[in-house]
Simulated scan of single mutants.
Amino acid sequence: MASSADAAGSTHPSTHVTILAGGLSHERDVSLRSGRRVAESLRAAGLEVSVHDVDADLLRFLDQHRPDVVWPLLHGASGEDGSVRDVLQLVDVPYVGTGPRECRAAWSKPVAKSIVIGAGITTPEYVTLPQSLFRELGAQPVLDAVVERLGLPLVVKPTQGGSALGVTLVESADQLPRAMVDCFAYGNVALIERAVRGTELAVSVVDLGDGPRALPPVEIVTDGPYDYDARYNPGRTQYFAPARLGEDSVSAVQEVAVRAHQALGLQDLSRTDVILDADGEVQFLEVNVAPGMTETSLFPQAARAAGLDLSELYRAVVRQHTGV
């Protein structure tokens, strides 16, 4: 599927941005909504914009139209694992965001955790277990060992993926088997980490050529788990942008987000999810190289909290790759 709409009366008709949105992941709908939002903002900034799905027509489209830059707004597999960016490099088309190798590292939650731990960042204790191990050793002995080691509550999540798909907060040991089943519906490897109580925050980072800087953290308050429904359907979740934190806490969470961005070699923009625990320590959860840009997404909320105009911000991101 492909769609294209040029900005009427564009003040910069020679600058053509192609946004990649859609794909075949579980997060297709979120990606399409993100793509529409960014396209609207870039058109408002006077740029020519086309929106294209990731399909069999994509390479022909890129060859015929040769956009000045591609902005991948794909969520989930292929969109965030670096593979689409590898293809863009193969056909010599510039793109917004992080390179393929760094995407692959950030896309794997255990790999990302290992890298940020090496940079001195704290993350909740965790184990990574493939589905095959449960068949070989038996599920219950393994789960008993997990609870014995990590305690309760726990968070179970796929090692790859976003939008909280397959993620479960486990309060009691009898909930753990079901949580594993739900997790394995979205991937063959599970990350089980000790749940941390505290303030849940999302910290977006932008780099417009003068080094990465963190935007105001967004505080997330939800009645129940911060799951897919709570993220993308208004009403279930309260957001405080900027977060209700003291100056020292704001600085601490922003520093962790920038350090994670740098340690992982990310480019242009990212979003880091953290918990500020009861002791005031920042606990790294995961990082996103293609933050959602929907009407309820955290990156746009942070940008508005910083007093930034989204059209001008997105145009500045694009300008780094076009010079226009």
Rank of each mutant, 00 (worst) to 15 (best):
V54Q: 07
P212C: 05
T98V: 11
E80W: 12
V258I: 13
V96N: 08
D92Q: 14
G161L: 00
E281N: 13
G22H: 03
A77T: 14
T272H: 05
Q320F: 04
F61C: 02
D92I: 03
H65I: 02
I275W: 06
V282C: 08
F240L: 15
V30R: 06
L176Q: 01
P153G: 08
T122L: 13
V205K: 05
G46D: 10
L73R: 09
S249L: 09
E148Q: 11
H16V: 14
I220A: 09
V218R: 05
R43C: 06
L308T: 03
I220D: 12
V84H: 13
S204M: 00
I192D: 02
D273G: 11
G292H: 05
E102L: 02
G99I: 04
R304S: 10
G35L: 07
V147T: 11
A185F: 08
P124Y: 04
H52N: 07
Q175S: 01
S108G: 01
R149I: 04
V170Q: 01
Q267Y: 08
V196I: 14
A252M: 06
A44N: 11
V156N: 00
L176V: 01
S31M: 07
R231S: 09
T294F: 11
R197V: 05
E286V: 00
W107L: 10
A190R: 04
E27Q: 06
V84D: 13
V84P: 13
G161E: 01
A185I: 10
T159Y: 00
P94I: 09
Q262W: 02
F240C: 09
R36K: 11
T15H: 03
S108A: 07
H52A: 15
A230S: 15
G9I: 11
E200T: 05
V274N: 04
G292V: 08
G265T: 11
S251E: 15
A195L: 00
D210M: 03
V51L: 14
G162T: 04
D6V: 08
S311C: 08
V250F: 03
V205D: 08
Y226V: 02
R259C: 09
A278Q: 14
F299A: 11
P100D: 05
P67Q: 08
W107K: 00
T168D: 01
G118N: 02
L165A: 02
V142C: 05
Q131S: 13
A5P: 10
P242Y: 06
D279C: 03
